[in-house]
Every structure is written in C-alpha cells, then in structure tokens.
Computed example of a mutant assay.
Amino acid sequence: MSYRLFLAVAFALPLAAAQAADCPSLLKEQGHLQKLRSKTDLDLCSLYAGKPLLVVNTASHCGFTPQFKGLEAIYQRYKGQGLEVLGVPSDDFKQEADDSAETAKVCYGNYGVTFNMTQVQSVRGDAAIPLFKGLAEQSGQAPRWNFYKYVVDRQGKVVAQFSSMTKPDDPELQAAIEKAIASQP
C-alpha cells in the first residue's frame, strides 16, 4: 500500500465513523433510496446531517404539482444558508407517473428542479420508507396528500409540518425554514 493511500484510508475511516455518529436517527438506515433518473443511492447522512431540510412528498399528476416551481424558489433562496430540499415522488395517492422517466421530465424538464429527488417511494403506512415513518412519528402526522411538507432542523428534528394546501411562499412555511436554518447542529 502506498503512503498516500495509507493516509487517505487512515484519515477517511475515522471521519466517516464520526459523521455516522453525528447522523440523526431520522436520516439513518434508509436502505436502498435511489436518486431519480439515476442508479445512484442517496446517503441521507452524508447529504443532510447537520443541515436544515425541507422534505416533500410529490406527485407528477396532481393539482399541487405546480408547487415544484415554488419549492425550487425556496431552494434557490435558502441554499446559501445551508437549506436542502428533498422531493420524494409517491404514488400512494394514485397521482404519480408509472414511468420514472416521465416523473423526471415533470420535475426537471417542466419545473427546472435542481434539488434532490428520489425514485418513487411509499410515504404512508407500513410500506412507507423509514424517512417518512420517522417524519410521521416525530410530527404525529403522515402525509395526508401529495406535497405535504416537513421542515427538519439541523439536529434532525421535525420543527414544523404543512399541508398540501400550504404554498411554498407561505410566510409560516418560510418562518419555519428560517427557524430550522438558525438552529445549531
């Protein structure tokens, strides 16, 4: 083993262990959560630990689908302050495309989304992915419809939840995001 490789491994392993220890339980053990339009797994701990996060379950064929534009505006407005947005397409309410390419076209092509989107996932009940089980447990509410919004602080705690009716530019949602941004890791 070369000296450079040895140093890389020697310093990377403790750093990875420290990052894993600092990862809130909400983001751990997500299993096989792939990025939309990709075979790349999303490691929620490495992407979002210590960062404020807005998590939204989405659907491509819903009356609330135009909220993608507002969600992207939120992301652009606050990403410099550390905010991350994660969109999770779901067909739990029977309004998601059958094809992930169509879902990607709606998100990326029609609305110009630049924040991370996952492949289609279940967000309610026993079939829900661990992230949404944790969001429901912490907040006391699973998504009631598409575009349900959860604001998570830097410690991985849900600080607010908002119904589908809440538009991304709503002052209460923006205040909750700002509160999450101001939280300390």
Rank of each mutant, 00 (worst) to 15 (best):
Q67P: 03
Q67T: 01
Q67D: 04
Q67F: 00
Q67R: 01
F68L: 02
F68S: 01
K69Q: 14
K69M: 13
K69W: 09
G70E: 11
G70Y: 11
G70D: 06
L71V: 12
L71Q: 04
L71T: 05
E72S: 10
E72M: 07
E72N: 13
E72V: 12
E72D: 11
E72P: 11
A73F: 06
A73S: 14
I74T: 12
I74P: 04
I74F: 08
I74S: 07
I74W: 03
I74H: 04
I74A: 09
Y75A: 02
Y75M: 09
Y75R: 03
Y75T: 07
Y75E: 06
Q76Y: 06
Q76G: 15
Q76C: 11
R77Q: 15
R77K: 15
R77Y: 10
R77W: 10
R77V: 08
Y78T: 02
Y78H: 07
Y78Q: 03
Y78K: 01
Y78G: 02
Y78F: 11
K79M: 13
K79Q: 15
K79E: 15
K79I: 09
K79G: 11
G80M: 07
G80I: 04
G80E: 08
G80L: 05
G80D: 14
Q81N: 08
Q81E: 15
Q81I: 08
Q81S: 14
Q81A: 14
G82P: 02
L83D: 00
L83N: 00
L83Y: 00
E84G: 13
E84A: 14
E84C: 12
V85T: 05
V85L: 14
V85I: 14
V85G: 07
V85A: 06
L86D: 04
G87H: 01
G87A: 04
G87Q: 00
G87K: 01
G87Y: 00
V88W: 00
V88I: 12
P89Q: 03
S90L: 08
D91I: 05
D91L: 05
D91R: 08
D92G: 05
D92Y: 13
D92F: 10
F93Y: 07
F93W: 10
F93E: 00
F93V: 04
K94Q: 13
K94C: 11
K94I: 10
K94N: 11
Q95W: 03
Q95T: 05
Q95N: 13
Q95R: 06
E96M: 11
E96Y: 10
A97R: 08
A97V: 09
A97D: 15
D98E: 15
D98W: 06
D98G: 15
D98K: 13
D98S: 13
D99C: 09
D99F: 12
D99Y: 08
D99L: 06
D99W: 05
D99R: 09
D99I: 06
D99S: 08
S100L: 12
S100W: 12
S100F: 07
A101I: 02
A101G: 10
A101V: 10
E102A: 09
E102D: 11
T103F: 01
T103P: 01
T103V: 02
T103M: 03
T103R: 01
A104Y: 07
A104F: 05
A104T: 09
K105W: 11
K105T: 10
K105G: 12
K105I: 08
K105M: 12
V106D: 03
V106K: 00
V106H: 03
V106I: 06
V106S: 04
